[in-house]
Amino acid sequence: MLQFKHVAAALTRRMIMAAALVAAAAVVTAAAATMSVQVKDAPVRATPSFVGKVVGALAYGDQVEIQQTQGAWSKVAGAGVSGWMHTSALSSKKIVLAAGQKQANVAASGDELALAGKGFNSDVEAQFKAGHKDIDFTWINRMEKIRISAAEMQVFLQNGGVTPKEGGAK
């Protein structure tokens, strides 16, 4: 408040502009502190490293508070889980799973919101399949089900004598 008075007293056009810029920057920083999970599901780890123990998982659209960052890893808390996530799983946009009209209008500008299931989605895939009966998705569905757990990966590396550099993904 005092600061505002000070600025207002000076009242030069330039200073008002500068104050506006500072305010805008502050908003950006605050907005960046909350992020959304942008993948189907992603592991949360005890330490900022691929070799860190998996302590939980977060799902698409879950919102998390960013408490700390270290390289490409963020310490997050949200949806009852806290720990480290790789930033490739996170988006600064708020992901809305079932949007109302109001949110949709905001999302159309594309900068603050992302609507889940919008655009190239399962409806479009279904439409594509209807027009291309010769294209078979059986094996695509089958390969998507092959998921290797973090524990299996660790055993695989150890048994093969493969020693990762500390930290894994940077």
Binding site: K40, S88, M143, I148, M153, G168, A169, K170
Partner: peptide, 17 residues
């Protein structure tokens, strides 16, 4: 899938297969 964990993009929407 182990190698993908060491890339700059270990997480994609549906994962690596």
């Amino acid at each position: 899938q182990t190698l993908a964990q060491f890339s700059d993009r270990p997480e994609t929407f549906g994962g690596y297969h």
